[in-house]
Amino acid sequence: MNDEENKYETVIKRCDGDRTVLQTLGVSPSSVFLANCTIWVEGITDRLYFVQYLKKYLEELKEIDKTKWEDYSRFIDGYHYAFVEYQGSNLEHWDFEVDSLEAVDSSKNKGLNAILITSNALVIADADLTKKPRFNELEKQLGDKIAITQGKETENSLPKKFLIKKFFEMCPDNGLAKQGNKKKLDYSDDYEKYFTDSYQTSTKGVGKYFDNVLSKMRKDGVIPKLENNEKSFTFSNGKQGTIKSKTGFCRDIVELMQSESWKLTPSATELCESIFQHIKANNY
């Protein structure tokens, strides 16, 4: 009887290669309670912006291409697609292809394989990723499944009208860094000339863009010149020019998006089209 019990052996094998078979049989990720594709963004602020971008894109599309709007508007967040936040430099840890099952090794520095835990990925990355050594490898792995922002980061694709509003909400009337002066600079139509569209393709963040506007206003006497040891108020956080209090800034912008009329910038429109093409390709 003991010989009979030991007659069979249980063998557990990897079955990742069976994905092609499942696709051939018509089994999609949503059939097993997973979204059919994923949109990888850097963090929560990017996700919040893109949710609003996609809604606005559909609104604008409805007015110019009804057929395309009907096609794209059927997609449901959480079913046809889902967002994944990779948290900036953590993208360095992910691979988006598997040469062989033996190549998967989570003990390596770059051992996290995206396709083993998530479905069909589109990665949206800040423009400065193109300067990093890892970019060429990611581009090779992802092909047209990686979308790069035209400006430094997602904030560079925001509508100018909202950036102007935030500038005056944040800027003290004396332009000084000294705490305690809560009075903000009053808006005037005369100041519109200081706000160009240059930020949309800039290698610096909108914080640096604001700092440059403040500097020009100070030069023209709109804001008093610095005296003695006075320090200028700054909008940026570090050399890259990212806006300070990025999450709070984002939530304010999103609130404006939900309560005021606005239009997508060309760079935001381009990213939305990339996203919807990806969603459509993975929801046939």
Rank of each mutant, 00 (worst) to 15 (best):
R218I: 00
D211N: 05
Y209L: 06
I243D: 10
R251Q: 15
S232V: 01
K204G: 05
S232E: 11
R218Y: 00
G205I: 07
D252I: 06
M217H: 05
S267A: 13
P224Q: 03
S232C: 05
E255S: 12
K204D: 09
K204E: 09
T242F: 06
S236C: 10
F235N: 12
D211I: 00
N212G: 02
S259C: 05
K263A: 10
N228C: 07
D252H: 12
P266D: 08
G207A: 05
K219T: 02
G205K: 05
A268C: 06
V254S: 10
T242Y: 11
S215D: 07
T234D: 06
Y209Q: 05
W262H: 12
I243K: 09
G241F: 10
N212W: 00
V254R: 11
R218N: 00
V254K: 12
K231Y: 04
M257S: 11
N229E: 10
K204Q: 11
S232Y: 01
K219G: 00
K225Q: 11
K246N: 12
K204N: 10
L214M: 05
G241Y: 08
V206M: 05
G238N: 06
L264R: 02
K263Y: 08
K244W: 13
G248E: 14
W262E: 09
G207I: 01
K244I: 15
N228V: 09
L256N: 11
T247E: 14
I223W: 01
S259E: 10
N212C: 02
C250E: 13
S236L: 06
E255K: 12
F235W: 08
L256E: 13
R218G: 01
N228D: 12
P266N: 02
